[in-house]
Simulated scan of single mutants.
Amino acid sequence: MSLNENSTYTLADGTDIRALPKVSLHDHLDGGLRPETVLELADGIGLELPADDPVALGAWFAEKSNSGSLVEYLKTFDITTAVMQTREGLTRVAREFVQDLGADGVVYGEIRWAPEQHLTRGLTLDETVEAVQEGLEQGIEDVRADGGRIRVGQLVSAMRHTDRSLEIAELAVRHRDRGAVGFDIAGPEAGFPPSNHKAAFDYLAAQFFPATVHAGEADGLESIRGALLDGRALRLGHGVRLAEDITIERQDDENTYVTLGTLSQWVKDREIALETSPTSNLQTGAIAAWGNDILDHPFDLLYQLGFRVTVNTDNRLMSGTTLTRELSILADAFSYDLTDLEIFQLNAAAGAFLPIEQREELAEIITAGFEGS
């Protein structure tokens, strides 16, 4: 059974959020394992775990992830990556990943992961990508067999604290016609700027291969600036600290008056998508400057100001969440209705790393699904 499969999330008008067509742009493969799968794969390699049943293990991941620190949050991935070092493990995790997206109403998903973290048992970089792609394709067939529809692509990521980014960029481009749709850098943000990976981003630009960059999560405006200038990012992974470049001048009962800085104005005017992940942003302290409650999240401010905000899960296992749940949390906090949720999905469709014709087709699927709800 996938995470939160039996939970019900509805809007104020009774609309079942799970049944709505959704787009997922920021979802880590090694952060979306089922607890029972972690247990079974760990048993096969003799890996000791902090709990021996799925419920307790899921609770352990959630507890350890709720630290207020991205560095501490990332430590939980030592376990998930450890069970994803074989072709069989990677393929199974990828297959179940797509099954769970399909069960959550996702019609298009981009799955990000770092091949360089899956080489300890003899796989080559290309073999890891092929193993994940095999699982993704199996998952797509499973969703279709259940009467659903889904399309997925790989966001091949390099770890920003290592020196393999050019090699990983070349790997992503090699697989651009075999599942890879984009590139990312992930891992600890502060102290590891995109400028460290200039050769990789230069290569990607020369190959016209799109990149999204984690920025504005554990570091501030300079990190976002580096993602745009050095990384040529077409989207910002999280990007919530862009709100530091927005000055609230005054508020009254009906309006908030703000001034945008040069950086935030650029992101807004260029319609650069922000890949926000509300629960994760709370867990990692990304919104600590504004508070520690979902109502403090700058998501609504960014949305009301016209930024291209999107809603994502980041890591479903660590955050104990689904895309349906994230949308429900925001709807409850900010009184969003069906129209708002549709805008978030259309924003994500517009930001997807797909050809324009396929983005337009995706938008039509979303519109038709929301109209029929």
Rank of each mutant, 00 (worst) to 15 (best):
L229G: 09
A349C: 00
I287T: 13
A211P: 05
A331K: 09
P210S: 11
S2D: 13
L119T: 15
G291P: 14
V311H: 03
E170F: 05
E48G: 08
G261T: 09
R225V: 05
A158C: 04
A200W: 10
G216Y: 03
R225H: 12
Y336C: 09
G237E: 04
L305N: 10
P115R: 04
D30K: 00
V240C: 05
A190H: 14
A286V: 08
D219N: 10
D126I: 00
E5Q: 13
E137M: 10
T124E: 12
W290V: 07
R308G: 01
V38D: 04
L90H: 03
L221K: 09
F209E: 13
I248A: 03
Q207H: 06
L155D: 02
P35G: 09
P210A: 08
V173W: 04
Y73W: 11
A289Y: 06
Q251T: 15
V311S: 01
S165C: 14
Q265E: 15
R316M: 12
I365A: 01
R359P: 07
R270M: 12
V23I: 13
D293S: 14
T313H: 09
T256H: 02
S264K: 00
T80A: 02
G291K: 13
H26Q: 11
G179N: 09
I287C: 02
D78W: 05
V106K: 14
W113S: 08
M159D: 06
E96R: 01
D43I: 02
L171T: 01
L327Y: 10
S335R: 13
R359C: 08
T120S: 13
V309F: 04
T212C: 05
A94F: 07
S280Y: 07
Q133H: 10
G320N: 15
Q345G: 01
M1G: 12
N312V: 10
G226C: 03
G187S: 03
I79A: 00
Q138I: 13
E364A: 14
V132F: 04
T259L: 05
V152I: 09
E88G: 07
G239K: 03
